[in-house]
Design a protein around this nucleic acid. Structure first.
Lengths: 334, 334
DNA sequence: CTGAAAGCGCTTACAG
DNA sequence: CTGAAAGCGCTTACAG
């Protein structure tokens, strides 16, 4: 394995010159540069990332903290994982995947050993105990999600509160006054997941403002129970004219449940939801929906972290990405 | 940030003694050990992973090469990613996620810079050009999947050929002679994905042996087109009595398609498939199916890689995990 | 424009 | 049982 010393010897220059030719941090005459490049090619030299990290005190690696809530819907999260990885690459960072069951321990492990320059946290809770371990770390972190009372760590997320308002408005504007709201399983609320609470709260608020009566249905993580609770809501005969679905799993099952009841969308029932385009294209989900744009949010999170790594003193930001409603014609005025 | 020198000074011993106390590679008197432990606690010392890696020429990191085929079904793959990460942790390895669009370049990048001790490859093709870059690397690799004509790199996978035979047998034994076989979109065959080809070939062979007439349907990656091709097969009136579904996406849409046609399983149609229990529990998939056991295969892949890192000269293995058929009662004898 | 030397934070032969 | 020193492969002040 060729080292920078081999290259220097082959090219007949000092190690420092090779280093500077590589980094461009100091001018190198074109003749020397030429010889160095030849040496690099001849010896198939690639710098040892670990040695570089040690000398620079910079690993060029971001930790991706994937502490997953047991009942969270896995497919949706995968998009965030992939997006973070790809954007990080674009910014010249590698991604270390940290899936320790205890996220706090995982963060400590990779930061204390200086394995990463910073961490990106997924599945943020309103009161997230991982925040403390980020603060205790030498390296900065960014939350892909919003925690309450946090003005110490950068965070970014889709504006789920606004998304909730937009969805209710979309229905209310078309005259709907009785709406079934299918939210996530209660376990996810108990786990304090931010996006779950924020959208729910804003839907309830906005419904109250608009005079919309809500039937709130908590999805069940188990398919059989899910079919039952959703079915019960659909069959309850209380004159609901629209469905607002947040739970991704419920969404996937919805076409079947509607079909079984001969319910046609939007003729018999208007439906709005929230899911990414890619997700909607994977399954058959032709519903008007808020686009949470996972790749946009993930990209922004990685950018924020890179910026803070570069400048630890910049002001803390909390960014909410404006949601976009994509009308796929699954609602009608009544 | 405390270093091993700080610890040594605090404890009044040499750096080498601290190092040996940490690694246990040399006896250390209990008195000294005591003082060292106090120093470590007082200074909150954790060894710098990069410096350790440089000194030991071992990163304790595995690269996870996630080159994803454009039309592959993402949710299923996530399970392999998570499983690899978790098992690697158990074996004291961190996982670097490599999602470069060009897998070959990704492998070269992380191996040449010595960022990893080895690589785990996902989504293996029958003729996988990433194999060459694994061979060119100083570090070993393992294929989570089977490539043809490969006796140079360890590999492990579910025995999809046997799975195909088992599924056909399960139907044939119950008297089914006309079966619709829903396989993956043609793009995935064009991409040469191993599991796609192997199961298809074995299903075709076994069907021929058992006198089963197959109607082969290639799924479409687009939901609308999928509904059409599947619908057409269900409606073709040629007396098919069973469905053998490999495509995971088709599987998720199946309940709706059956419901729309008033087809009851197994009364009107027997259904067998292949999907993991976790996957089946996420969606509503009450079908008799082969369990590909992603966590078992992923665990074995990581173990094989760790073993080869430890002993580069051990013989190359190709392991096929015996599939298990879980009967959920979605077939009946005719 | 270039080089010799010290340093990043570890480990490990070598010596006692 | 313990220590002083060299080395892993880089970078960067310092000097010319």
């Amino acid at each position: 394995m060729a080292t920078i010393s081999d290259v220097a010897e082959y090219a007949g220059v000092a190690r420092s010159t090779v280093s500077h030719a590589l980094s461009g941090k100091r001018p190198v005459s074109s003749a020397t540069r030429e010889r160095i490049n030849e040496a690099i090619a001849a010896l198939r030299f690639t710098a040892n990332a670990g040695a570089k990290a040690l000398a620079l005190a910079k690993t060029s690696t971001m930790g991706l903290i994937v502490s997953y809530a047991p009942d969270e819907f896995a497919p949706a999260r995968m998009q965030y994982v992939l997006a973070v990885s790809e954007v990080a690459r674009d910014l010249e960072y590698d991604v270390l995947m940290v899936t320790d069951a205890d996220g706090t321990a995982g963060i400590r492990r990779v930061t204390e050993s200086n394995r990463v320059d910073g961490v990106v946290l997924l599945s943020i809770k309103r009161h997230d105990d991982r925040l403390a371990s980020v603060l205790a770390a030498r390296q900065p972190g960014v939350l892909l999600g919003i925690a309450e009372d946090n003005d110490v760590v950068d965070s970014v997320d889709t504006d789920f509160a606004e998304a909730g308002r937009m969805l209710v408005r979309h229905l209310a504007d078309q005259g709907h006054r009785r709406v079934i709201f299918v939210t996530f399983p209660e376990q996810l609320f108990a786990q304090d997941l931010g996006y779950v609470w924020r959208l729910r709260d804003s839907v309830i608020d906005e419904a109250a403002k608009r005079g919309v009566t809500l039937t709130i249905v908590y999805d069940d993580a188990k398919p059989a129970a899910r079919a039952e609770v959703l079915g019960k809501a659909l069959d309850d005969g209380s004159g609901n004219t629209a469905l607002l679905v947040h739970s991704a799993a419920a969404l996937v099952d919805l076409p079947l449940l509607l079909s079984e009841r001969g319910i046609s969308v939007p003729r018999d029932l208007s439906v709005v939801s929230l899911f990414g385009e890619e997700f909607g294209a994977m399954f058959s989900l032709p519903f008007t929906a808020i686009e949470p744009a996972p790749e946009v949010v993930a990209a922004r999170a990685v950018e924020l972290l890179a910026a803070r790594i570069a400048d630890p003193s910049r002001p803390i930001v909390r960014e909410l990405i404006e949601p976009v409603l994509i009308d796929r014609g699954s609602t009608r005025a009544i």
